[in-house]
Design a protein around this nucleic acid. Structure first.
Length: 594
RNA sequence: GGAGCGGUAGUUCAGUUGGUCAGAACGCCGGCCUGUCACGCCGGAGGUCGCGGGUUCGAGCCCCGUCCGCUCCGCCA
């Protein structure tokens, strides 16, 4: 039907006759000559129609935006002075001698323009039109190149692509499950997988050694710019490996990916940082290393002052007092500081103390601050020294429970980095390692896995595990972070029944529950389970970063809205009584019915 | 569950203190135009101001409720 893609046309096809199929991107009618920019997935090319070709000219005259055309014509150089350097095909044009209207089109509800952006709701409602836009075409093509590169690398390293079930069972821990009622077993439900975690471990036990899958996962939790109810994981697992092997595979894969797709070299090896150090220095377990700001611990300096706001947390084992020095921050206005105060308030901070360093040579006189008067001169001097403050700087403080301080100053650090234009260019991957095994939840009064209950602890045996303070226990888990985005995480797994039972025990999952929910896993562990470990990546986030987009919706063909609906298909929708009856389901109440 | 921002023409938006405030640009339709490329020029059509209620002589504007979109907190092993 066609000989080339529109976007392919260049001087290489000079003087040859080409046949193109595409959409009318734009039509410029000069009365005596008509230009049509014809668009397909590869790009744009300008087609010229002259009145001498009567039939073609008449058809071009009729054509409107988004009409689908098949055009035949000869490729020629553009006349002197009319070359368009913004277009790949801009040195040439196609002289249209035959046109066929393959289909007409209604006027689109929004312009498929780079220049003006339609609201996201309109774009989602007419997603098939939105996806025609060159920007979206490029994003989804980028996504395809990403998965292609990943597959090639992993397959070269001997990984097998094996599918796992979409209909599985609900898990007691973790995110809320999407449920699917069983028709053949009324009253019972499948769950859609939150990840193939247990299946990939079973594949290791089954001897497949090296597995990977690019697989859809489902979590029924509230949405964010980087969270959708269905999303795609690059999931990997290998047997007879330790954390070094998994991290090695990962780095090779990412390095090749960025080289092939973006022409960029990533650091070799990726730097590593412990979870504790990440929180100490950056207030985040996914620090953006492009931002040259760090938190500094000052609890010891203010532990003795009368100022309860500081001395309280400084003497609380779960508290933290930290400073964040902002070079040149003295120029921040009162309004800006107020806005930052409001920002950290969202994370539970009760305020945002600061010191403006006007002239440190003058001692306390050279400082401008609402809190200096509550501190000792010794404390202030110590703070200035430790933060390395210079003239014109500003120092922010966080004093509260450690979690609040980290969240507040960690977020503040990122915002300051962007607002003050301090973000360094480039790609800064890193590994976060030495995660705690558990996290204590004060509300529920119990431990939760920081990763998941199958993560191996750094403990020799179950007895050693029970001897330790659970909150001090480290796991054999690792996260890979890129420019402040958590790209993926994984761990070496437990491959021993007794150890798995011991971890369940610490999580408050008793023998009976463990058997009921994970009996098949505990059983499988007893039939010769090899040591194994793996990692899973958020593919959408990876592509989002590489595409320079600020939401994963921009790199998904048909994403959901924040309330988890599809504006195009209007899913979820009600179903008929007959369908419900077949499933043995009666609705408690029909809310939101029309 | 909570906080914030937004909803006015097909689209993106403006609309002051409640009183010619139903507006602009783009798009669309018609006409003109032989080198444009976000073509240009002339003319035209196009509105349930998200929805419901209230205050008022009078509401796009104020109040209450509600729906939708986005950002964030909680949540996301």
């Amino acid at each position: 039907m066609r000989s080339h893609y529109c976007g392919e046309i260049s001087e290489r096809q000079l003087d040859s006759e080409v046949t193109l199929c595409g959409w009318v991107h734009r039509r410029r009618d000069h009365g005596g000559v008509i230009f049509i920019d014809l668009r397909d997935r590869a790009g744009l090319v300008q087609v010229v129609f002259n009145p001498e070709d009567e039939a073609a000219f008449a058809t071009a005259d009729r054509a409107r935006g988004e009409y689908v055309l098949r055009v035949t014509g000869r490729v020629r150089h553009r006349p002197e002075g009319t070359v368009n350097p913004d277009l790949h095909s801009g040195a040439v044009e196609v002289v249209g001698t035959a046109v066929e209207v393959l289909n007409t089109a209604q006027t689109p509800p929004f312009q498929l323009e780079e220049h003006e952006h339609a609201g996201e709701d309109v774009r989602l409602r007419y997603r098939y039109l939105d996806l025609r836009r060159p920007e979206m075409q490029q994003r989804l093509q980028l996504r395809a190149r990403v998965t292609s590169s990943i597959r090639r690398q992993l397959e070269e390293e001997g990984f097998l692509d094996i599918e796992t079930p979409m209909l599985t069972r609900a898990t007691p821990e973790g995110a809320r499950d999407y449920l699917v009622p069983s028709r053949t077993h009324p009253g019972r439900f499948f769950a859609l997988p939150q990840s193939p975690q247990l299946f990939k471990q079973l594949l290791m036990m089954a001897g497949f050694d090296r597995y990977y899958q690019i697989v859809r996962c489902f979590r029924d939790e509230d949405l964010r710019a980087d969270r959708q109810p269905e999303f795609t994981q690059l999931d990997m697992e290998a047997a007879f490996v330790d954390e070094e092997a998994v991290m090695g595979v990962t780095e090779r894969m990412l390095r090749r990916l960025f080289r092939e797709v973006l022409g960029t070299e990533l650091a070799e090896p990726f730097p590593r940082i412990s979870h504790a150090e990440a929180l100490d220095r950056f207030g985040s377990d996914k620090p953006d290393l492009r931002i040259p700001l760090e938190l500094v611990e000052v609890a010891d300096l203010v532990a003795g002052v009368d100022f309860k706001v500081f001395s309280g947390p400084a003497n609380d084992p779960r508290g933290r007092v930290a400073a964040l020095r902002v070079p040149g921050g003295g120029a921040l206005t009162r309004k800006q500081i107020d806005d930052y105060t409001e920002l950290v308030g969202r994370y539970g901070a009760k305020g945002l103390a600061y010191i403006k360093v006007n002239d440190p040579g003058q001692g306390l006189e050279g400082l401008q601050s609402p809190i200096v008067k509550f501190l000792t001169e010794e404390a202030v001097t110590g703070i200035l020294e430790r933060t390395g403050a210079e003239v014109g700087d500003l120092i922010f403080f966080g004093a509260d429970k450690a979690g609040v301080v980290n969240a507040a100053l960690g977020t503040l650090r990122v915002h300051l980095g962007h607002d003050l234009d301090m973000v360094e260019p480039g790609w800064r991957p890193l590994w976060v390692v030495d995660f705690p095994m558990f996290e204590y939840d004060e509300q529920d009064g119990r431990l939760y896995s920081l990763h998941h209950p199958f993560t191996a602890p750094r403990a020799a045996d179950p007895a050693a595990l029970r001897d330790e303070d659970p909150e001090a226990l480290l796991s054999r888990a690792y996260d890979v972070v890129l420019n402040g985005v958590e790209l993926g995480g994984g761990s070496v797994r437990i491959h021993d029944t007794a150890m798995q039972q011991a971890v369940f025990g610490l999580l408050g999952i008793d023998e009976e529950q463990a058997q009921a929910k994970f009996g098949f896993l505990l059983e499988a562990l007893q039939y010769g389970c090899p040591p194994h470990g793996g990692i899973a990546f958020g593919l959408d986030r990876l592509v989002m970063l590489m595409a320079g987009a600020d939401s994963i919706r921009e790199v998904m063909a048909f994403p959901k809205t924040q309330t988890a609906t599809c504006l195009l298909t209007e899913a979820p929708a009600e179903v008929g009584e007959a369908q419900l009856q077949e499933l043995g389901i009666r609705l408690r109440r029909v809310s939101g019915a029309q």
